[in-house]
């Protein structure tokens, strides 16, 4: 890892649907060990950009590099293995599995042992499970849901499910975790808890991109904020300067400059 290389570099990204450019000439980069916020009005290309970065949609043009490595046309699973994990706007968790199983499953693709070791329960596989269990124990305490550790996640509330998705994303210690609206529809006390979790992890060296409509949440957490408008980056900067940028206010809040 060369600290001069940005952690994530997006260059000239374009994605069109039936001739309409959802994202056009999108370029931005994210440094190591940062929390970067992405804001923008509806239809500004936030979700499409995340989908392109994480491989769920194929861009029509542009380059995406993770820590210098080109990940532009890789499948979602390969991008995840390369160290970029994303969460989803609508909660995606394994509802029929327990919280513990959700976390262990999230670590599984990053472990070395294959099908034979799994089938025969070889010692290497057992060691991996033990190691993942230690990590899961830390995370379940961090999100404060130990009480529900062995309960199927189906019974949890919406906000709690969002926390499970967050913890699952953190299980493999990704280089970069992209959170798609982590606090949409979550009650204010819970939002505070999520903030704390993210700050603690950041202190431990984790990097985040947070896409959120909740501007206060983004302003409190992020060191840098990128503003998307109309499918490309309009501006970026520290929270204060972005907040005072007249163009941002106009685009975001509809207040004429």
């Amino acid at each position: 890892m060369n600290s001069a290389t940005p952690l994530l570099e997006v260059e000239g990204l374009r994605k069109s649907f039936a001739g309409v450019h959802a994202v056009d000439n999108m370029s931005f980069s994210v440094a190591h060990n940062t929390i970067t916020g992405v804001i923008g009005p509806n239809g500004s290309g936030k979700s499409t950009t995340i989908d392109c970065i994480s491989g769920f949609q194929r861009p029509n043009a542009g380059r995406i590099r993770l820590d210098g490595r080109d990940i532009t046309r890789l499948t979602p699973q390969k991008i995840a293995k390369a160290g970029l994990i994303r969460t989803f706007q609508t909660v995606h968790i394994y509802e029929a599995m327990t919280l513990r199983e959700n976390l262990l499953q999230a670590a599984r693709p990053f472990q070395a042992s294959g099908w034979v070791a799994d089938f025969l329960r070889l010692p290497g596989m057992r060691r991996e499970v033990d190691a993942a269990m230690v990590r899961a124990d830390e995370l379940v305490d961090m999100i404060g849901l130990r009480k529900y550790y062995d309960a199927p996640t189906r019974i949890l509330s919406y906000g709690q499910k969002k926390l499970v998705a967050l913890a699952a994303g953190l299980m493999p210690k990704p280089r970069l975790l992209v959170l798609d609206e982590p606090v949409a529809g979550v009650n204010p006390t819970r939002i505070r808890e999520i903030e704390e979790v993210i700050l603690n992890l950041h202190a431990a060296g984790e990097s985040f991109i947070i896409v959120e409509h909740n501007v206060e949440f983004v302003m409190r957490l992020c060191e840098r904020v990128i503003v998307f408008v109309g499918g490309s980056k309009m501006t970026e900067g520290d929270p204060k300067s972005v907040q005072q940028d007249a163009r941002v206010l106009e685009a975001y809040l509809g207040i004429p400059a």
Binding site: S54, F56, T75, P76, Q77, K78, A80, K81, I85, R86, T87, F88, H92, I93, Y94, E95, A96, M97, Q105, A106, R108, P109, F110, A168, P172
Partner: peptide, 14 residues
């Protein structure tokens, strides 16, 4: 079982 419940999530996890 995970793939059956959410293929997108499984893919996003590698």
């Amino acid at each position: 079982r995970a793939i059956n419940q959410s293929e997108d999530l499984a893919r996003s996890q590698g």
